[in-house]
Every structure is written in structure tokens, then in C-alpha cells.
């Protein structure tokens, strides 16, 4: 039984890491109705900026601040040079633009900071917490727990921001109807710049966590793919949905990895490892059939 819980908790904690990436998607989707394909690339850019600045001799805190500045500037530039030209274009045009943006970042970032993989040391050790090890005989990573704490704070802040502040309300209004928002005097440019700035900040947090865990390397851009099933489960428009979706995906993929292969091997014989890699996508697919808007997503309102 301890083993089950160990797997479950480990899964939940890694799910939090997925949720961190998914959050960035949710933000931009909420405010502009666009699936931002470049979110993974932004995570990479953020992590690379931190690692790059540290390599040049900056201490961690300064590197993080510099990376934050870079991400904010990047967000503003994206609004200015890409989105502003595409107001009132169909969402697919904006989506294509974000694909272009992703390739642009993936090309530019290594050019500036170098492309070799490197480690990112946040000063949090990735080792089992003695308490759980002694009392429960479970291996729970300290790093994962810290990451979970950071993610919870981030989610709580963002949820409050969206629900209660003037700008948060305006963000949701813009997501609902660009033109109407424009007509009542909400300046779309500011709103989009803010959203991309915040999404950049979320990418920075995700980049720090993922970079510290897996090293800063090009593979970070693929974290975006892991966020996809999370989004489908949680709903593209819900901040809490991203976190719940992340938890479900994280826990289920780890449990599936442990408990399904023996069953399959019993039926068919042979080796069924690596389920973890594709299980979330199957889950997402099933979910799409049953509840396409996700657990917490906004239902499409149709009046009949």
C-alpha cells in the first residue's frame, strides 16, 4: 500500500509540473482565444535566459530578474509586431502566427545563449524527504514538493487576479468578444501586452522548475506537448482546471505505468513498458469524446 501511495504522490507532484506549463496556455487562450503554440518555446527561452545570465556571472536572483525582463519585453514585442497586425483575423491565422513565433524563438534563443545543454541549480536538492522515508517508507522528493508549493501560490494568485481585479475582468471580456471590448474602450493592445507578459512570467517559473529538474536544453520545448492532455482534461479556459488536469494526468500516467503492464503481460505475454509516454493522450482522447470543454472549461453558450 505504501508503494501505491508513493507512486500516487510522485505522480501528483509531477502533474504539478505539467500544470505549470499548461497555465501559460490557459492565460493566453483566455484572453485572446488563441492556442499559443509557442508556449513551450517560451519555457525554453526563459530557462535559457536564466542559465545564460548565470553563465555570464550573474547570481541566481539577478539572472531570474533579467530573465523576467526578457520575457516581458518579449511579450510586449509579440503584441506590437505580431498580434496587433492580426486583430479580427480568424483564430487560425493567430494560431499559425504562434507556430511561426515558436520557430523564431527556438532559432534565436540558442543563437544568443548557446545551444549546449546545461544544468540549472536553484539550490533546492532533489532528494527524498527523510520524514517520509523514515515514517512511511516512501520516497517523496523535496524538489517536487517545493515545485508544488510554487505552483499552488501561482495558481491562487492568477485565479484571484482573473476573478476580482479590473484588468482580470477586462481580460476575460476581451476573450469573449474582441470587438465589444474595443467598443467600450478597453484598449486591446495593453490587455494583450499584459497577458503575454504574464504568460512569459509563468513560462519563467515553469522554465526554472523544469530546467532545474531536467537540465536546460532544447527538449524543454516539448514540455508543451505534455501540457496538451492536461488542457483537454482541465479545460482550455480554466486556471484551476489546469492544475486539476495536471494532477490527474500526472497521477494516472504514473499509476498506469506501474499497474497496467503486468496485466497486459498476463493477457498477451511480452513486455509493455513505457505506457507513461502515451497514456495521457489516450485519456485526453476519451475525455474529448465525453466532455469536450474539459472539466472546468467554459461551455459554449448557444441560445436556441
Amino acid at each position: 500500500m505504501e508503494f501505491f501511495f508513493e507512486v500516487l504522490i510522485g505522480g501528483l507532484l509531477s502533474g504539478v509540473m505539467y500544470a505549470l506549463v499548461a497555465l501559460g496556455f490557459v492565460l493566453i487562450y483566455k484572453a485572446s482565444g488563441v492556442f499559443n503554440f509557442a508556449q513551450g518555446a517560451m519555457v525554453y527561452l526563459a530557462a535559457l535566459s536564466v542559465a545564460g545570465c548565470m553563465e555570464k556571472g550573474a547570481p541566481l536572483w539577478l539572472a531570474v530578474i533579467l530573465a523576467f525582463v526578457i520575457m516581458t519585453l518579449f511579450g510586449i514585442a509579440t503584441e506590437r509586431f505580431v498580434l496587433r497586425k492580426l486583430v479580427n483575423q480568424p483564430p487560425i491565422a493567430l494560431f499559425m502566427a504562434t507556430i511561426g513565433l515558436a520557430f523564431f524563438i527556438e532559432g534565436l534563443a540558442p543563437l544568443v545563449f548557446g545551444s549546449e545543454p546545461r544544468a540549472l541549480d536553484l539550490g533546492i536538492v532533489d532528494e527524498p524527504i527523510p520524514y517520509f522515508l523514515d515514517q512511511w517508507n516512501m520516497v517523496i522528493s523535496k524538489f517536487d514538493l517545493v515545485a508544488a508549493g510554487v505552483a499552488s501560490v501561482l495558481v491562487a494568485t492568477l485565479a484571484l487576479f482573473f476573478q476580482t481585479t479590473r484588468v482580470g475582468r477586462a481580460l476575460r471580456a476581451v476573450a469573449d468578444d474582441h470587438q465589444a471590448a474595443l467598443s467600450i474602450g478597453i484598449p486591446l493592445q495593453h490587455i494583450w501586452a499584459i497577458v503575454w507578459g504574464v504568460a512569459g512570467f509563468v513560462a519563467l517559473v515553469a522554465g526554472l522548475m523544469w530546467g532545474a529538474r531536467n537540465g536546460v536544453q532544447f527538449a524543454l520545448t516539448f514540455t508543451a506537448l505534455k501540457a496538451l492532455p492536461v488542457l483537454i482534461l482541465g479545460g482550455f479556459t480554466s486556471v484551476p482546471g489546469a492544475i486539476v488536469g495536471g494532477l490527474i494526468i500526472g497521477a494516472s500516467e504514473k499509476l498506469a505505468e506501474i499497474y497496467i503492464p503486468p496485466v497486459l503481460a498476463g493477457w498477451f505475454g511480452g513486455n509493455f513498458g513505457g505506457i507513461e509516454g502515451w497514456f495521457p493522450y489516450i485519456l485526453a482522447l476519451l475525455f474529448l469524446l465525453v466532455r469536450p470543454e474539459g472539466l472546468f472549461g467554459e461551455r459554449h453558450i448557444d441560445r436556441v
Binding site: 470587438q179 465589444a180 467598443s183 467600450i184 474602450g185 467554459e298
Partner: peptide, 13 residues
């Protein structure tokens, strides 16, 4: 200020 044709309320708010 303009009130647009077709009302354009923010449906999810």
C-alpha cells in the same frame, strides 16, 4: 460610446 448591433454582451461574464 457605441452600443453595437447584436448587443455583443460578454456571454461568459
Amino acid at each position: 460610446i457605441q452600443v453595437m448591433e447584436g448587443r455583443h454582451c460578454f456571454g461568459h461574464l
